[in-house]
């Protein structure tokens, strides 16, 4: 856990690069989804190709992390039923706010004050998810209660 402080300069570098890449410029989001200017599509697709090559190289050489020396876990995020609806909801917000979770933080640093609202919203949305997960956990051990609630729906 000592390496966590390393992520402060890493975050600074990432935020700086997002800005230089145009990912903190609202107009590029509108132009991307109107298919007028593919600046951000270039950024994303070239980044993926570079990442693909780099990760391939790290895998081939069985590289250990420089800090900590552990071998790197390249396991991808799993599929789950909520993935597609979640991704589309994310996209709807992405287009509306003209920002994503990383870029909106860099926008705040650039003095784009609308980012304050978007960041507040992201925290709120994350909280909403955590709250919903909690509800599901609370109801699980009481299947009889669920049946009582479900019955009137079936009749109607």
């Amino acid at each position: 856990m000592k390496d966590k402080i390393l992520f402060l300069p890493l975050g600074i570098l990432f935020g700086f690069l997002l800005s230089r890449a145009g990912a903190t410029t609202y107009d590029f989001y509108a132009q991307l989804f109107l298919f007028q200017d593919l600046q951000l599509l270039w950024v994303i697709s070239v980044a993926i190709v570079v990442g693909l090559l780099g990760i391939g190289l790290l895998k081939l050489t069985n590289f250990k992390a420089l800090v900590g020396g552990k071998s790197i876990d390249f396991k991808g995020k799993p599929y789950r039923p909520s993935l597609i609806p979640g991704a589309v909801l994310f996209g709807l917000g992405w287009g509306l706010a003209g920002a994503c979770p990383g870029t909106v933080l860099a926008m705040l640093g650039e003095g784009k004050l609308g980012a304050i609202f978007t960041i507040f919203g992201i925290i709120l949305g994350t909280y909403l998810y955590g709250w919903q997960v909690g509800l599901r956990m609370d109801t699980k051990p009481q299947p009889s209660a669920d049946q009582i609630i479900v019955k009137p729906d079936i009749i109607s």
Binding site: L83, V88, L92, W94, G125
Partner: peptide, 21 residues
């Protein structure tokens, strides 16, 4: 509107398990 956009981003990314990064 920006807060609404943020809520969709935050809630959606947790449902999907990740974001553009």
């Amino acid at each position: 509107l920006l807060t609404l956009g943020g809520v969709l981003i935050g809630y959606g990314s947790r449902l999907a398990g990740g974001c553009t990064s």
